[in-house]
Design a protein around this nucleic acid. Sequence first.
DNA 1: ACCTGAACACCGTTCAAGT
DNA 2: ACCTGAACACCGTTCAAGT
Lengths: 221, 221
Amino acid sequence: MPTPKDPPKARRAPLTRDRVLDAGVVLADAEGIGAVSMRRLGRELGVEAMSLYNHVDGKADLLDGMLDRIVGEIECPEDDTDWREQARRRAISAHAALMRHPWAASLWTSSINPGPQRMRYMDSALRSLRAADFTPGLLDRAFHTIEDHLVGHALQALGFPLDPDEMAEVGESVLRSFPVDTYPDLAAHIRYHLEPHQEAGGFEFGLDLILDGLERLRGSG
Amino acid sequence: MPTPKDPPKARRAPLTRDRVLDAGVVLADAEGIGAVSMRRLGRELGVEAMSLYNHVDGKADLLDGMLDRIVGEIECPEDDTDWREQARRRAISAHAALMRHPWAASLWTSSINPGPQRMRYMDSALRSLRAADFTPGLLDRAFHTIEDHLVGHALQALGFPLDPDEMAEVGESVLRSFPVDTYPDLAAHIRYHLEPHQEAGGFEFGLDLILDGLERLRGSG
DNA sequence: ACCTGAACACCGTTCAAGT
DNA sequence: ACCTGAACACCGTTCAAGT
């Protein structure tokens, strides 16, 4: 029935690992990581769930691949500014990437197989510290402390409602559900967060505390 | 058939919310949070899954309740030592509790409804900072920065193999799977972690960096 | 009041079968 | 080489029925 020269009818692009990972990221961004099942992702790509196994080594591998795409968004400064400025910019870029893709931070902490982009990111961060003459022991602590703050802040910020409406709702409900007299400081804390503040900047605040402390130890070590 | 006076045959204790939560914690500690399903937990208690709904408001409520039990293990210093020592001891106790129950840290960041123990913990931490005359804005930042570090370090430490055998295996496998010449600093980092170091102390290191910085700002604010 | 059985709409993954 | 259908052993939750 088709003519010898197949007219370019809207024929599906062939499935590839890249297309599967892309679709996974799009789906997770749009509906949360909970929506990313093999069956649902297959449907999104116009294919049965089982076809995905030809391009991805099971669900864990799919999630690893999706995470590495997000890590690829992190900008690693490679110029010759001082270590502090480099660490600061890299951490802020990483934090922003995790905030753009709310599902990625928990994969960051649980993934055991670093992908290529994660390796690039880690190597860059470690090189920058070594170039600043951090001693091996201090270098390790510096790297991990920055990582801890990065992922800790992202997860804490993502775990609690961002938009003011939701915050108001949750805050009021908590305030109603417990004896304000028993926990007056918690009550004050919630009220503080119900008022408009410059919520942003919390990440940089802690980051600078850490970087200042590291610079001090670097000098004295 | 049973005599009027029921002999105390091994009759099942009646199900209560406490017993359900206890069983959940025991199961999660033993086999991981992935093993905690309504069906499996029911089986563990000698009951059908649906019975649990009489004592718990669905799975989310079950997990909230389990988390709050772990938060209850945290020791909140209430004496009149200085704020720094109090914050330090509370954070170390909280961190230890999260490390004892590896499944709890991710619930900590994702739970939206603080339980009674979480309220007690937060109120104690906030009160201690207020008593040290932290300004409202700085108090909020101090509290959240300590929390970020706490949860970030726990999740990062739990996400990577603790015992040396597993570490060796994963480390070697990563070292084999990437071009060492391309990422020499990452290679050095992995090798560093393959040698025996005093792995402990990483949490306190970052914590002290943060507390030192906060004390400095408190004085100058 | 508490527990159960059956049912609904899902999961990840394996495997033999198709093209 | 890639995709599919059927199957297996699971999920959380609802609901009518039992005691």
